[in-house]
């Protein structure tokens, strides 16, 4: 099974990289861009794990290692069964 975990800053935390990218897009005329947050993507291949187990495993890995809960949040999804 392959899962994708997206880690990004919490809304309450300033994201200067995201702001810089947004400003760059504005400079290039992409005025439709309202807001932009930058984050990290992890694509993880899991072996011998079913969906139920993944529901337990992935949040644990994400909160313990991949994201720092003080500043970051995460979402995840299964991209390949």
């Amino acid at each position: 099974m392959k899962v994708r975990i997206l880690v990004s800053f919490k809304d309450s935390v300033l994201d200067p990289q995201g702001q810089t990218v947004r400003n760059a897009l504005h400079t290039l005329g992409y005025d439709a861009v309202q807001d932009l947050r930058q984050g990290k993507v992890f694509e993880v291949e899991l072996a011998g794990v079913d969906r139920a187990a993944a529901e337990k495993l992935v949040p644990e890995m994400a909160s313990k290692v991949l994201a720092n809960p003080i500043i970051e949040k995460y979402t995840w999804s299964v991209i390949e069964d």
């Binding site: 935390v13 300033l14 200067p16 990289q17 810089t20 720092n68 003080i70 500043i71």
Partner: peptide, 16 residues
């Protein structure tokens, strides 16, 4: 900070 022996976290410098 990561060990949580001290509170808070570090972000990228303001000038990136």
């Amino acid at each position: 900070l990561e060990l949580e022996l001290l509170p808070g976290a570090m972000l990228r410098n303001k000038n990136l």
